[in-house]
Design a protein around this nucleic acid. Structure first.
Lengths: 230, 230
DNA sequence: GGACGCGTGAGCGGAATGAGCAGAACTCCT
DNA sequence: AGGAGTTCTGCTCATTCCGCTCACGCGTCC
């Protein structure tokens, strides 16, 4: 990628989720991930060291609150753009995020397309700001605001498109049923139980499916997975 | 090629697909590719900088909708002719494309011959307009309109005709079987596995063949390719 | 004759899978 | 309450294949 890629720091307490999101970001032309952080302390120090253009920020971190980190990040001479990525939808989190001036707020779980739309909007907004006239017209202001407004979520098919082939099959298999075990999925797809389990855990971590345990029988309880409906 | 070649901009989010399409265009006499764009932004700015006669426009781009780019391209003092090349066939996309005045709409995947037909039609239409008589007959009008209507897809043999020699052999090899691996194809054609893999990936990306994974054995699963039937 | 571009193959690092085992998590029984 | 037994998950490791880089050969151009 050329020098004008936007450098991005991914912050999430769960390193697996962070890796999935890093994968998403790196699929979008014009963006490059320069680091991952899994704690508030690490996030702040990496932001200072790396000076990323963009930060994907989770709210719940082991040693602090993500929005506190955002406040510190934005209070610098070269603040990054921040997209909050969190399962938290409480009014305080949303309001604080807005007040701090984060450019987007993505509610977990989200798919690649949803993130890709916002990354593109960020890129466009930066371009417009960089070329901002002395006396901006209402149209230009409206355009910029439009770039910073969340676009509606695309369909499931679009979300699946950029996934690894086996992950796609696993997700499709769950979508066709409910409360399926790793062995069920494995049998349907034609893969091993261990591989199915691997992907199911991944999907559960990014919030695409939900987990329930089957109790009432001897032995370790079976994990049952269903697609998380929005 | 002479100075009167029609300059063409190829727009596709996937640079490999764009390269395949560039290869197609450059096989047609009278056309020259002056650039590739992989985002909406790049496409538009390149269109403004290069002033191409023709644009091949994908609809789904990372930072915007192809038809939005088309709208902007056509709203200029010297608009290009636009051929939409997309997998999208929903009524909204098609209708909008028509309303915008794109001259053709190609549904992915398509072969060289399908594109070549339309390029020839575009060239003929431009020549006809340039040589438009004072009092045009109904036949001349009908002929012009006919040039701007999509032609039916030619057969597979015609599609193969202008492909690179090795790519042709690979495609023929797949057509003769089903669920073949890169090693199978390599053995049949007499090329290395790496070369077969390279072309198979290319064919898969443009949608000419479909990919399935062979599960059930330890080790990385084998990619199996089959011709995608229409 | 040398530089350059292109296509190909060799070969290497790493991705992705399954086998299989240790241990986790539960139920049942004493 | 604790131990035994059962069943399942998580993980490591070996295997197999893919993706990619680099070198080479060949043809073209200057």
């Amino acid at each position: 990628m050329s020098d004008d890629s936007l450098t991005t720091l991914v912050v999430d307490d769960d390193y697996r989720v962070a890796s999935v999101h890093q994968g998403f970001v790196e699929k979008v032309p014009g963006f490059v991930v320069v680091g991952q952080a899994h704690t508030a302390t690490a996030a702040l120090s990496m932001a200072q060291a790396l000076q990323p253009d963009l930060v994907l920020m989770d709210i719940y971190l082991p040693d602090g609150h993500g929005l506190d980190v955002v406040r510190d990040m934005l209070d610098s001479s070269r603040p990054p753009d921040v997209i909050v990525i969190s399962a938290a939808t409480d009014v305080e989190s949303v309001r604080t995020a807005i007040q701090l001036g984060v450019v987007h707020y993505l509610v977990k779980p989200f798919g690649f397309a949803a993130l890709a739309d916002r990354l593109s909007a960020v890129r466009a907004a930066r371009a417009q700001i960089a070329d901002w006239p002395q006396d901006a017209s209402q149209e230009e202001i409206d355009h910029l605001f439009g770039l910073l407004r969340p676009a509606p979520n695309p369909g499931e098919a679009a979300e699946l498109e950029h996934l690894a082939p086996t992950l796609q099959l696993v997700y499709k298999s769950i979508s066709a049923g409910a409360g399926l075990s790793a062995s069920d999925i494995a049998a349907q797809v034609g893969i091993s139980r261990a591989t199915a389990q691997r992907y199911l855990t991944q999907l559960e971590h990014v919030g695409a499916v939900k987990l329930e345990l089957r109790y009432g029988q001897t032995g370790r309880p079976e994990h049952r997975y269903s697609v998380r409906r929005r």
